[in-house]
Amino acid sequence: MAEEVSSQMNSLSISETNPSSSATISLVSGDDIVFKVEPTIAKEMETVQSFIDETDGKITTIPLPNISSHDLPYVIEYCEKSIAGKITKEFEAEFVKKLNNEEVKELFLAANYLNIKKLLDFLSQVIADRIANKSVEYVRRYFGIENDFTPEEEAKLREELAWTFTGVDPDDEDEN
């Protein structure tokens, strides 16, 4: 995976030498890796763009402490496709095939932090697909949610909703 990241970074730094991109934006991941991107990519990320706007474009290095160098290339890839108008069902299917559950969740949180509407929208659907027909315990584990019901409350709910429990997928501990 480290190799993949560095190759992504290479391809991104190459674009820096492109004469048309006089003012590239540096995005700094939480683990201090710098990603150089075109200003058009930054525009897709509302949080980044408003940071640039607020400083009148003087600051072009933007720290993103909540986003790791593992997730950021995926975000950049999606944004690149998006501005190229190349978000197709096929691309999205391929994109999501590469991601395990944990990565989908991390990317979703990153998309929320960066406020990228299209990516959020797309990942909402991916998350919905990944919890479809899964057990209650599976959903709790996936999102790190505590069961905060009293035993009586949970028993009542499970009885009322018994019809939703038939035929759910068996839990697989090795899901990730």
């Binding site: 959020l120 909402s124 919905a128 479809a132 209650v136 959903v139 905060d148 019901f149 909703l161 939703t164």
Partner: peptide, 25 residues
Amino acid sequence: ILCSILERLTPRDAARVACVSSVMY
């Protein structure tokens, strides 16, 4: 955004999510 995820579930999945936690309920 939480609501928008739930809207993409089937009625059966959305109903079952109520058992996950009080907030999901």
